[in-house]
């Protein structure tokens, strides 16, 4: 625990809390509804997509509680993209601090990730409310939800560390990441039941940790219906099921190492 105590020393914790508080205040300053927007935004997106995909196109393919299924997907996707996109610019955005004071650099990325976590928490409350309205029965598999969220967070943190450090040198990354996120929106089974696409593609799709987490979370929280495709179901007992977890671990380690390698030169390159 020596490392943990040093990294999360009293000083660093106080600074982290203050940075999160500042970002929290600043983000929606001047807007009338203020922080409500962090819940309203995914809800409005959900409303639009619900009308198109659940009512018009009927992409639910008979999955029970499809609105909740859809909302959960949107909430998890919003968390992933918000956290990575906001972290991407976090080091550059705090250039004034980095050039003038020697604080641990990771605190800046970490504080923007905590902000995304707070939003996720608020949105999960909305999911719970919609579950109640929709009459979704509570299943024992709900215990997996925290583990899945941790997996998603670690994946997003690895990407955030890499992006925030690389963005200092390569400003094109902002646009590139935007395109990747847009692509990911359609490649990840957010809007449709996976059962409507061929099994071959299902297998490929679920190697993406975000898709794997999303499907596992839907299985654990919304429905065990056979059409809720998860990585465990498509691969059976095959070792392939480990691939997303390995990707998460490698992403995190590579992101962290790259960040550590670059952080000493942030002040000069900014």
């Amino acid at each position: 625990m020596g490392l943990f105590n040093r990294v999360f020393s009293k000083k660093n914790r106080a600074l982290l809390a203050e940075l999160v508080r500042t970002d929290f205040k600043l983000r929606y300053q001047g807007s009338v509804l203020g922080y409500a927007w962090s819940v309203l935004r995914p809800l409005l997106l959900f409303g639009i997509l619900y009308v198109i995909f659940a009512l018009v196109i009927k992409s639910g393919d008979g999955i029970p509680h499809f609105p909740v299924y859809l909302l959960l997907g949107i909430v998890l996707w919003t968390f992933f993209t918000d956290m990575t996109s906001q972290s991407l610019g976090s080091i550059v955005g705090r250039g004034d601090l980095i050039r003038k004071i020697s604080i641990p650099r990771w605190i800046i990325v970490f504080s923007s990730s905590i902000l995304a976590l707070i939003n996720l928490g608020l949105n999960m409350i909305v999911v719970a409310i919609v579950m109640l309205i929709n009459g979704v029965p509570l299943m024992q598999t709900i215990v997996f939800i925290p583990l899945l969220l941790i997996e998603l967070y670690i994946f997003a943190l690895g990407i955030s560390l890499f992006l925030s450090a690389a963005f200092v040198k390569f400003r094109d990354l902002g646009f590139i990441w935007e395109v990747i996120v847009q692509m990911g929106f359609y490649l990840t089974p957010i809007l449709y039941a996976m059962s409507i696409i061929p099994v071959r593609f299902q297998k490929l799709q679920l190697l993406n940790p975000v898709a794997q987490v999303m499907q596992d979370a839907r299985y654990s929280l919304v429905s065990h219906h056979e059409k809720v495709v998860t990585i465990w179901r498509v691969f059976g007992g095959d070792w392939y099921v480990l691939i997303p977890f390995v990707i998460v671990a490698i992403t995190f380690v590579v992101g962290l190492m790259y960040f550590r390698n670059q952080q000493d030169s942030f002040a000069e390159n900014l």
Binding site: K11, A14, L15, E18, L97
Partner: peptide, 12 residues
């Protein structure tokens, strides 16, 4: 004051 204080290493 609180933000600047935290940067100087003070707790709340």
């Amino acid at each position: 004051v609180y933000l600047n204080g935290a940067l100087l290493g003070f707790s709340r």
